[in-house]
Design a protein around this nucleic acid. Sequence first.
DNA 1: ATGAAAGCGCTAACAG
DNA 2: CTGTTAGCGCTTTCAT
Lengths: 362, 362
Amino acid sequence: MSPTEDAASSMVTLADIAARAGVSMSTVSRALNRPGMLPAATEKHIRRIAAELGYRPNRAARALSTGQSDLVLVVVPDIANPFFPRLLRAAQRTLIDAGLYGVLVDTSDSPETETRLIREVARNTHGIINMSSRLVADDLIALSKEQPLALINREVPGVPGILLDAEAGIQAGLERLVDLGHRRFAYVRGPAVSWSNRRREEAVRGYLARDTTLGLVTVDPGDSTFDGGVLAAESVAVSGVTAVQVFDDVMAQGVIHGLLTLGLRIPEDISVLGCDGTLAPSIRGTLATVALDYEEAGALAARTLIQLRRGVEVPQPHIRVPGSFLPGTTIVQAPSPQEVTGVDSRADVPAGADSPLAATDR
Amino acid sequence: MSPTEDAASSMVTLADIAARAGVSMSTVSRALNRPGMLPAATEKHIRRIAAELGYRPNRAARALSTGQSDLVLVVVPDIANPFFPRLLRAAQRTLIDAGLYGVLVDTSDSPETETRLIREVARNTHGIINMSSRLVADDLIALSKEQPLALINREVPGVPGILLDAEAGIQAGLERLVDLGHRRFAYVRGPAVSWSNRRREEAVRGYLARDTTLGLVTVDPGDSTFDGGVLAAESVAVSGVTAVQVFDDVMAQGVIHGLLTLGLRIPEDISVLGCDGTLAPSIRGTLATVALDYEEAGALAARTLIQLRRGVEVPQPHIRVPGSFLPGTTIVQAPSPQEVTGVDSRADVPAGADSPLAATDR
DNA sequence: ATGAAAGCGCTAACAG
DNA sequence: CTGTTAGCGCTTTCAT
């Protein structure tokens, strides 16, 4: 059979059912939307007829009447960034199960576009799931006062947020590295504006601070891409570290590529730890990384939003979904001590061609 | 400023503008929706007031009145499959520019779910973009009679479709391989149901048929994943080929992994050519592949749908968007002839552990 | 327990 | 050229 009813039956209206059942429209409406309000017999009768006729509510009419849409705006800076698809999938499935529909909007990483599109689209939605928003906190707070708003990877006071927190995974990875004899580490940064980046650097810094014999160098590439990683590799190479934690997997691939090009061996000379687990399904068993629970986080965001739509106060506004260490072949025993070179300048230096020098900062 | 108007002003209605402008609602409606119908002066005046008040149309009301929604259903088998995000992004941007909104639905690769969700959601949308649909042709034909329908990677008679056609890229890649001295090739298949897979195999077969000295072996893994690729590697290894075209990049990574595990060298012993270019932004410069133009295809699908919504007959129902060969380090000179082993069984054999034997089929 | 009726915001005849 | 009017399909008082 055809996947939708034919044109005629898809236009079945409450009035049609009412006529057929010999009751009024309001009765039909009640039977369908307020289970238990009517005598069980009539309710069942009406529901049967509705089913027979293949009735599907006209959402626009309902929205107009109630002033409440079943549309949820889902905002993403870049759908093609492998960080988002699994989140989207989980959120979308949860929404569908609740009878809600997600309108997907890609903001091209631009706060202006984000503002414009939200303003344009949000008029006709009820609820927003905003992933890795590029807006400033104040805008998000203001937005959350107009409409239910659930954030992903933003920690804004008073606004519910789901946080994909790599800390535990990063620290487990670092622990493994320390056990393997590594003492000098680099962290290659991601986008400065990103909550994830700040959080990850904190995690690295926090873990290494436990032991004063451990050293950290941070590298600030211009660009959080594969190419940025390639560039960052120069700084990593001269920094004398034996292990590097990179902001995400794509950059980590760039770092590896860059290090190999510079004549270093991976992992013999330098161990590399990525983050996100986005490449795992495609290129398994190579890059050690931190796997994030996208399914859980996406579903949580949707569930939070559904609560907010219902007017339920969300008790715990910020939920952290922990990531876990995913071993790989890019991590091995630290090279023997005499091969390790120390560095001791102090300021962070961008990994540009001119100043390919990284610096210790603790 | 806040990204949306405040609650009060976001509820500005046509009547408000009419009152403020001292005209009737219909005049306002005309000024806003039928540019040029009114005297330029009044139109401008009304538009100014509307802008001042921060008017945003209530789409539900408009939909109810016109019987036409500005929602477009976008159906995808699996958002997390890297084949789709860039298509989605392009389609979504084109839709937004046309004032339309995409409701995203993921069918979990299941035709049943696809049918159910389309039936449920399509009632309230006008137009469907269906990517790599799992439905049978008849269902799609039926669906296209109820609502504008644009397909991606499905070739269904009478239904407009955009086809990401890897043929040209595959053939350019094969040509390169032939120039490098390769004579015996394998094709590792993707999902049997997939249009892409059939088309790609055809492309390989068609190209190699030009020269009777060229041989082809096909391998049928159980599963179109990284692991399927690993399994397929066994058959590839024993087939005596020196070059292999794999259905897609993810499987190609699996094949490479499998071949390496079996002790073969890549690319010295076997050259590998992937397809899709999905891994290119993350792992550049390694896998030779066929880059597809997702941006063009996604935009074309959206534009086609927009035409259909306007009642415009689409002249050329099936548009092929050609892919192009993307060189990589997995392709080199064929090993010297004496190293090459021939195979000459004839039937396709699944690449299972029990029968790790591939077969020549032309 | 059920029906009648008003109205959500907008569009589209139909008048003037 | 512009205003009046009647719905679109549904929910929701308010009566009965």
